[in-house]
Amino acid sequence: MAENVVKIENLVKRYGELIALDHLDLEIKAGEVFGLLGPNGSGKTTTINCLLSLLSYDKGSIEIFGKKMSPTAYDIKKDIGIIMQNVAVFEELTVQENIDYFCGLYITDKAKRKQYVDEAISFAGLEDFRKFFPKKLSGGLLRRLNIACGIAHKPRLIILDEPTVAVDPQSRNKILEGIEELNRNGATIIYTSHYMEEVEQICTRIAIMDKGRKIAEGTKEELKTMIKNTETITVALHELPEKVLDEISALSHIYSADYTDGTLTACCSGGRHNLIRILEILQKNDLHIGKVTTAQPTLNDVFLEITGKALRDKED
């Protein structure tokens, strides 16, 4: 069994009356890409800040690499790479100088550092922007610089706190591919996001957080089995008589059926051939069938069912 890289026990963090972390327990194994998923304000960044000893906490304990984490635990810190939510670089230093600066906080050997800096520039695809100042970079390139600064020293544990916020799709894909590559090269990754698609794409294990609590944890497959919904079927129809809708609702394994704005939506819980059985009923009643889709549950469905609300606001 893989060793624990991070172990958080019973962590409590309060901001006055507000409980930001409510008895949080987490264990992250070596080699994992561990996703912390939750809406804004759920406690993801607070967890990361406590983990890094940037924030004090009221109760609980944090161990990294089997040792107690503290602000002066420099032997632990040297093996951690952090990519913060806000881009944290010097505006007055070029891309190469910034990466060299951050790498120099960890690596004192000049020759080794030069090699690492070159590799980080190459990894982030910033070869053509070495002499650029951050102000001249696009949002996506700036995020990539932020990542290069965080991983240049080849850490064993990499923490990425919402690294793709306000990033174009091309850069986002590049960033996600890079994270998978870092993991393949042996790094353990902690990835926080409120973008469920990203977490589903790269994370091997996920903890869903809400209001400072961990409300579910497991692989994405395990999480999806925690909820009632196994399949959602939609069928476009010009009309759907009430009696036909009742007939569909009465099918075994269909726990919800609804007809709104010309679309039948049927939620299934287990069972096989649910789509065929619905289509048979529609054909039997001579109804003209339009576009048909079937979807597996997403992490948003998991979150929705557990908390009764969506992961992201609509405008997100």
Binding site: L52, L54, Y74, K77, I80, L105, Y106
Partner: peptide, 8 residues
Amino acid sequence: ARKGCSPT
């Protein structure tokens, strides 16, 4: 904050 995470 980023510098605070380093071993310096």
